[in-house]
Design a protein around this nucleic acid. Structure first.
Lengths: 206, 206
DNA sequence: GAATAGTTTAACCATACGGTTAACAACAAT
DNA sequence: ATTGTTGTTAACCGTATGGTTAAACTATTC
């Protein structure tokens, strides 16, 4: 039994990729093991052979999604850039990330609402948010009269909200404002620069 | 068969209220007809007696939720107020609405993502978004040099995002920043005024 | 090439689920 | 009193679902 590790991980990866696709699209409750098996073109029993249960398989997918979702923010927030650069980079990089992973934010947010306890299981060991530096930078700007008075957390939530929300609300934009696929793409592309300007302008005092 | 209309609607309302609670909490896929029946303290067959199927019952709940979610925005957007007042009122009223219906936005957004077609069935006849006036007001302000150049839709999405997102991301705020129930309440209360100031400041040119 | 360990499959199992039914209760109309 | 209508219940039905099993297949080791 030398090197089945190649085939082994091949099957394992096929399953994981299929599971990602289905779980992201349907959520935990909506996903069916059979559908995942079909997507992976593999026998359903194999899902249980490699991952013991639906929960375990989901946990793997969820963990991966969350581990991708947060670091983008964290790395930039904790960097040595100044506030303007952080905000600009944060918005651009985060939107780019979501363009490549459009289902991830909605998936993570929904599953976190369904089961908030899940968060604790892996956050502590995997995601450590240390926004102190960023928050201090904001506070200094406020104290020096450069920025309007705003709670740093309020600002940060607004930035993240601005990036994530359009993707979560995509069907609304489609039906309410008639944005089709192409329009939406343009809207998002435009959003990167315009949100950067808007938020920076909102931060600076007149 | 004089007046069972009282009792009739009593049972019907008990069911609808229970269904609202469960559907909002668990989503369509996660909700069980038995759980709704238990919540309403009523026999499961009654659910099918008054509403024919799970889909029909869900449709009633969803319609109601969506019909509450949009008009708050629409009425203010279409009013005769000036831009500053519209933005202020929009943020305050919308956040107040979500405080009273905290599960509604996440519920509607998620179910709309699961089944975007649902939107079309009732939007055309029930929700008509006419943001032209608001958009013109913004455009005028931009043309006159009062506002920074921003696509009105970008602004509007940002405002709505700022109101809704904190509630959808509540578990994240809890785990990542340690906001407990009370902290969250304060955060939201503070947000009403600070977001108003921040967004208005972002709109006006220096 | 037999033995052994890992992999894959079809068939199966128990349960949970949405939905139905048939009998019954309450009560108004005749 | 009888009939008909509406509301209510427990028991039931067919199916879909997550999960298991035992046998077949593959490949590696000796």
């Amino acid at each position: 039994m030398i090197n089945n590790s190649v085939l082994e991980t091949e099957a394992e990866n096929k399953i994981k990729e299929a599971a990602r696709k289905i779980f992201h699209r349907r959520g935990f409750d909506g996903a069916r093991m059979q559908e995942i098996a079909d997507e992976a073109q593999i026998n359903k029993a194999m899902l249980h052979y490699y991952f013991r249960s639906k929960d375990k398989l989901f946990e793997a997918v969820f963990k991966e999604a969350a581990m991708k979702l947060f670091p983008v923010v964290i790395l930039i927030i904790e960097s040595d850039l100044d506030v303007d650069e952080k905000i600009k980079k944060l918005i651009h990089n985060y939107i780019d990330f979501i363009i490549d992973n459009p289902y991830v934010p909605g998936f993570v947010l929904h599953e976190l609402t369904q089961n908030p306890e899940r968060m604790k299981h892996f956050v502590a060991s995997n995601v450590l948010m240390r926004p102190q530096k960023f928050f201090s930078q904001i506070q200094e700007g406020i104290d020096s009269g450069k920025y309007i008075p705003i709670a740093p957390l309020q600002l940060m939530v607004t930035i993240v909200a601005s990036c994530i929300f359009p993707f979560v609300a995509k069907p609304m934009l489609h039906t309410l404002f008639g944005l089709d696929q192409d329009d939406f793409g343009e809207f998002i592309e435009q959003r990167k620069e315009q949100m950067t300007q808007f938020i920076l302008n909102g931060l600076y005092k007149k």
